[in-house]
Design a protein around this nucleic acid. Structure first.
Lengths: 142, 142
DNA sequence: GCTTGAACCTCTAGCAGCTAGAGGATGTAT
DNA sequence: ATACATCCTCTAGCTGCTAGAGGTTCAAGC
């Protein structure tokens, strides 16, 4: 039986975050001691590791909820899990493409700055005038 | 003189967001009609465009605040603006590196899924066991 | 058995950066 | 004069946590 602190260290998840996952139903209600402290078993350790690892790969909590659900039903076809992963992959690729365009623009800005007064600063100039951009970048956070 | 709706359309910023920017002091208090509706001039249109464009390039609202401040003082040296842009570029590059690692992992997961039952799904298996990952991916959102 | 102190508990509020909706006032065209 | 799109303020919500207040429990040492 593990305390929440031990579970926290083993998974690299903050104590508050574990309680948060419980609150939103991602982690089950754990057993409690007579005094009301949480105690975890290995199944719960595995579950939290799964969640943690999925987060590191960028899955949303909602996606993780689905993945956990699939993981709990070994006889269901795995198309859905596959689809979720593909969706995630697609998102990652979109984000990468976007960042690439941003990098180009930022590099150009920084490169052209000659270090004079702000009045002549290319960085600020480019920000002022979108038409100077060579690439398109229309959505944030994508 | 522009209404908030017109400004919204011209810059591609939602009305609520413009009011939000005003609230946090990123946009100045605009003039008002007798009835209390906001009216904007071209200087404010430029300012919002600047903000919007900076957001598209991924700058935080705090960074934008600094950039706007620099932009308002044409005689100051532009090192600071340059530094902010460099910082942003660095962040973008870090994020790209991270996404690259994630993409590798996701591709592998998806590639190996053979489409059977969830019990044998490689996607779920990899999520269960971090040690199967070839690359490191230790921080989220980086 | 008693004391200490680290670790636990709940609850509330806060972070970025918006977004949505309620409920009502204004502005403009006809 | 009326209709109705657009405006107003205010509050609450989103994701995914994180921090702190104020109080309780557990385990180890004496």
């Amino acid at each position: 039986m593990l305390t929440i602190g031990t579970l926290s260290k083993k998974t690299g998840t903050k104590v508050q975050t574990i309680r948060y996952y419980e609150q939103i139903g991602l982690m089950p209600d754990p057993g409690r001691t007579g005094g009301g402290q949480r105690r975890y078993d290995n199944a719960q350790l595995d579950r939290l590791s799964f969640i943690r690892h999925s987060r590191q790969l960028g899955f949303s909590l909602d996606a993780i909820r689905e993945l956990l659900d699939l993981s709990d039903h070994p006889n269901r076809p795995c198309d859905e899990a596959d689809a979720i992963a593909r969706r995630q992959l697609k998102q990652v690729e979109q984000r990468m493409a976007r960042l690439k365009a941003l990098r180009t623009e930022l590099k150009r800005m920084v490169h052209e700055c000659s270090g004079g007064r702000t009045a002549d600063c290319r960085v600020l100039e480019v920000l002022r005038d979108h038409s100077e951009c060579l690439t398109e970048h229309d959505e944030i956070g994508a």
